[in-house]
């Protein structure tokens, strides 16, 4: 009895399996706490720097001023009006641009001849910085809503077109062959293979195009406008009213952020087959 106990004792103790040390902050709450801490810290530092005179409030603005400004413009309703205006322009531009671009891009799949014919033109149009079109678009479409939407369309449609066309070209040839051997028509192959297999790529352009649509709307407002966040930012910066500029910028940031997450919701809804099934993640 004692002998065995002895043996057990002298045997090299089984090394306890080294537990991977888990980062205490690596949870939703932990991460959120760190993120909020970083933001609050940043603004406090900024505020302090201005108050102590290390930074000029005239040139960089001041968080407390930005906050006052935001509260003021929320109270008089102008923030919502301007934000709503810009969002409206961006959504119109995004929707039309994405739809027009995707439809043309997918349609090019139907004819290799036409696709090859127009390829250099698409490349040429794509290589023009679309912002450079802004003055001419305002000449054509006026200083109202239409010119901002047009500018947003010019930015978003080409991205959607190129992505949709490329994805349609890359659609799995074997799936097409399989369907063809079953006797499917070109129309059926489009509907059953091309359209669904390009959908993830098209949705991926949503993320990019939401940003581009906002760029189009805001730049349009910079050049000539009576409303919108771009207008607010532009006017305020010409008056050296940095707090108002920041208020506009932060609102834009929030809008873009919300849109981005909206795309995620849409993605999960449209692509249920892409959802992660809680697979194993490799700890590298």
């Amino acid at each position: 009895m004692t002998e065995t106990a002895q043996v057990v004792k002298t045997a090299a103790p089984a090394r306890p399996r080294e537990k991977k040390r888990r980062n205490v902050f690596d949870s939703l709450i932990g991460r959120s706490a760190l993120q909020i801490l970083a933001v609050v810290g940043f603004f406090l530092l900024w505020e302090a720097a201005v108050r102590c005179g290390w930074l000029s409030g005239f040139l960089v603005g001041q968080p407390s001023g930005v906050l006052r400004n935001l509260i003021g413009s929320i109270a008089n309703g102008s923030l919502f009006a301007d934000t709503g205006y810009t969002i409206f322009e961006a959504i119109l531009g995004f929707t039309f641009g994405t739809v027009i671009g995707s439809v043309i891009g997918l349609a090019l799949w139907y004819s290799v001849f036409v696709a090859r014919l127009v390829e250099p033109f698409i490349a040429a149009i794509n290589s023009v910085p679309k912002i450079a079109l802004a003055p001419i678009i305002i000449l054509w479409f006026g200083t109202g809503l239409l010119s901002k939407v047009a500018l947003a369309i010019s930015l978003t449609s080409i991205v959607a077109l190129i992505t949709a066309y490329q994805a349609a070209k890359d659609a799995d040839k074997d799936l097409q062959a399989l369907l063809f051997s079953m006797g499917a028509s070109k129309q059926q192959i489009f509907k059953r293979v091309i359209a669904p297999s390009t959908l993830p790529a098209i949705i991926a352009t949503f993320r990019i195009n939401i940003g581009f649509a906002l760029v189009g709307a805001v730049v349009g407002e910079f050049i000539s406008s009576q409303h919108g966040l771009g207008h607010v930012i532009y006017v305020a910066s010409s008056l050296y009213d940095l707090n108002t500029v920041w208020a506009g910028l932060f609102t834009l940031m929030l809008v873009g952020f919300l849109f981005y997450h909206l795309v995620e919701v849409i993605e999960n809804w449209l692509l249920p087959w892409k959802q992660q099934q809680g697979g194993t993640q490799i700890n590298v």
Binding site: A177, L178, G183, P196, S197, W273
Partner: peptide, 19 residues
């Protein structure tokens, strides 16, 4: 024999977006 054969390949070629 297009439309009259059942073609099956090494890859299962299931459509990932279809159940």
């Amino acid at each position: 024999l297009r439309g009259r054969v059942g073609y099956m390949m090494q890859k299962d070629l299931l459509f990932p977006w279809r159940t």
